[in-house]
Structure formats: structure tokens, C-alpha cells
Design a protein around this nucleic acid. Structure first.
Lengths: 208, 208
DNA sequence: GAGATGACTACACGCTTGTGTAGGCTACAC
DNA sequence: GTGTAGCCTACACAAGCGTGTAGTCATCTC
């Protein structure tokens, strides 16, 4: 996370280890014993500092959100320009935090990440000359798509033949995303036709 | 699943209950005791029929894949036309199966769903006059996006204010998807610029 | 009728989980 | 020295999990 470890307090090492393991396995499957072991402390200390596993998760949420905001701000820099070198340096950390936040969200209860994504999506949509019918639904689906990429990291990596988080793998993923969002796979006519077909479908009875 | 229950064999009821619970909670969190209870049998019978929890999951995988293929075939019908009424009738079942398959895939090990999606994606790409650089990466990201929508069902439903699987909610989701894929949010110039910027980023050292 | 087979249940085992408790160690105040 | 507070460990506990075992019951064959 930061340097290697060592100079960090035990509390910080636990937090970092938790973020790593939560990101790798998901919140449920990651056990406090494994987290403690990775941090090099006893599981009791984890409890001492964070009270419970859920307390630890909340602390991780808070830290990850704050850190992401900090990274974002630092990336844009004082002059608002994006420095490639800075981006490359913070990239691994950002990927890890992103993976963690996505995993944390999938566990249920809190949806801080999705909500904040919706919020920044609204301002983006507001500034763009781009007006989907049903903007809320549009944003929700769009965000779900972007998050899906991180959730499918293992599957995508297998197809790519390299880790999606590696520099080259990540570039291929970004390139694909850009192509998807700039080269429409449906022509406007096809899109129009699909929307018409969708409207013509009269949903009847519905139950499982 | 089928009718209500009752007339189904215990084995089928267990399988259906498992698909429901796996889809709702995920494979890990769903316990064989709860599955047995929902099916109205003892947990021992589940073991008797399927050997183990993993055996049950495999049986569900096989069944769900076969059922989906059957639905797809039935939907297109003998004359290759899509009947709206048929679609509406099978819609709930298809949604449930889709949710299950996605959940099953997220558990790891097997990636039947992703692989088969890749395969049909390849033929689609082959027939389309549409040539992304790095087709495999393109397809992988595209599929991850589509799957992400199902994984984010709860979050999307909350934003929509209604269940994404309900008739109206599902229509809003589909409409958003179509708009995303037919109205590019990046102009060709913006896309070109983004790709150029991406290439200019020289990834340096990389480690966590 | 006797025996076998398969559907089905009840119950116990071993393991892992998160959590609770008691206590040791170091550093600092007085 | 003597507390005293905070970091930290070791160990026990109850609960829930998947799994294993023993046995009941109905149905069918001969």
C-alpha cells in the first residue's frame, strides 16, 4: 500500500491488509484471522482497534473513499492538467482501492460508491450536450457497466491472457472501453428500431 | 419456476429452490439447509440427490444453461420470428436463470457463462461490419459490462425506484442500454483523442 | 412373505467463523 | 517504586457451516 510495511502503525497495516484481502476475495470470504496474519498481528488486535469485522469494513470504506478523492485531486494537480507520470505512479493504488470499493458495495447494505458515482454522473450529464430519455436510468446502467468491468477482472484477465490490472492489460481494457463508447455498435437506425420494438412489447402477467 | 411446486419431484424442487436462493444471495451465502427448507425437504435429501453442495451447483449450472438455450430457441420459434407474447411469458424465468448464472460465475472456478458469451460474441463480431482493434479484449469488456447490469440489480433498482426485473423497470434498463450502445457519448474525435492520450501514457514501475 | 432398492429423515461430527475474556508487556506520570 | 493507560497476545466460547452415519418407510421383484 504505502511503502512496504514496517514503518506503518499496526492499525494502518491492518487496514491495508483488510483492503487487500477484501478486494481479492470479497468481504464475506475474507476472514479476520487471515487479515490479521497478513498484517502480522493477532486477530485480537484487529478487534481491539476496530471493534468488529463490520467496524473494520466501515473504516476501510471511509479510508478508501477519502484516499480516492485525494488521488483524484492530486492527479488533476494545481493547474488542472493530468500528469502521465503521476497517473502511472498512483495507478496500482487506485486500482486496488477501486477493486475494494466495488467488492464492499457488492456485500449489500452500504452503497456509498454507487451513490457518489451517480452524483458525479449527474453533473457530467448536466454539462454534456447529451440528453438521454430517463437520465437516472441511463446513469445507473452506465455505472453498473463500468463497475462490472472491475467485478469481472478475473474473467477478463483470462481472456486477455494477462492481468487486467497490469499496465498492458489495463491499456487494452481502456482501449476497448473507449471504442465501445465512441464507436456505436448500433447505427442510429438500428437503435431507433430497437427502441420501437421495445415499446411495442406489451408486458403481460408477471410473476415467478 | 415451473407451476408452483407440488407436482414436481423433490429433486426438481430442490434444484429450483437452489437456483432461486443462489440467485438471491449468491452461492456462498446460500446454505443447503435454507435450500432444503425452501424446497420442503430435509437437508439430507439434498445430499442424497446431489452428493454435495458443489454437486448441486453443477447440476444447477447444467440445468440453467440448457433451459436458457431452450428458451432462446423457443423464443425465436419455428419461423425465426420473435413473439412478444412468448417473450413476456418466459421473461420472469429467463431473468431468474440469468441472475443465477451470473451469481454462479462470480463464485470462481467455472466460467461456462462467460466462455459461451464470448463464443457467441465472436460469431456476432464475425458477421458484423465492425472491426475493433483487439477483438478479444473488446468482447471481454463488452460482456463484463452486460453482466455488470445483472450484478448491480439491487443498486439499479434503488435508483429506478422499482425492481429492475419488473416489466417497467426492465424496459427502462433495456432502453438505457440501447441508448448507450447507439448514441455514443464520445464523438469520434473525442474517442480518437482519448485513444491517442492512452497511447502516450508510458506506464512506468508497477507494484502494490 | 422375503429381500432389495431408493426416497427420505434425524442426528451427530469436525471445522471454521466472529466474538468475548483474561492477562502480559512497554512507556510514561507522580 | 507504583500505578495506569494503551497496544497486543493467547485462548475459550457459541454459532453456523458442509458433511457423514444410521435408520425408517414405501415400493417393487421374485
Amino acid at each position: 500500500m504505502s511503502s512496504q510495511n514496517g514503518d506503518l502503525t499496526a492499525r494502518a497495516r491492518i487496514r491495508d491488509a483488510a483492503i487487500e484481502l477484501f478486494a481479492e476475495r470479497g468481504v464475506g470470504p475474507a476472514t479476520i484471522r487471515d487479515i490479521a496474519e497478513r498484517a502480522g498481528v493477532s486477530s485480537g488486535l484487529l478487534r481491539h482497534h476496530f471493534g468488529s469485522k463490520d467496524g473494520l469494513r466501515e473504516a476501510c470504506d471511509e479510508y478508501a473513499m477519502a484516499k480516492m478523492a485525494e488521488l483524484r485531486e492530486r492527479l488533476l494537480g494545481p493547474n488542472g492538467m493530468m500528469e502521465p507520470a503521476v497517473l502511472a505512479a498512483m495507478h496500482p493504488t487506485a486500482m486496488l482501492l477501486q477493486s475494494y470499493l466495488v467488492r464492499s458495495m457488492m456485500d449489500g447494505t452500504s452503497s456509498v460508491l454507487f451513490d457518489s458515482a451517480m452524483e458525479s454522473g449527474r453533473t457530467w450529464l448536466h454539462n454534456a450536450d447529451f440528453h438521454p430519455s430517463d437520465p437516472e436510468g441511463y446513469l445507473a446502467v452506465l455505472i453498473a457497466m463500468k463497475i462490472g468491468i472491475f467485478l469481472m477482472r478475473d474473467q477478463i484477465s483470462e481472456v486477455l491472457g494477462e492481468d487486467m490490472m497490469s499496465p498492458t492489460g489495463h491499456r487494452r481494457m481502456l482501449r476497448a472501453s473507449i471504442e465501445i463508447f465512441s464507436l456505436p455498435m448500433l447505427t442510429p437506425e438500428q437503435g431507433e428500431r430497437a427502441l420501437k420494438a421495445l415499446d411495442s412489447l406489451i408486458p403481460t402477467e408477471e410473476q415467478s
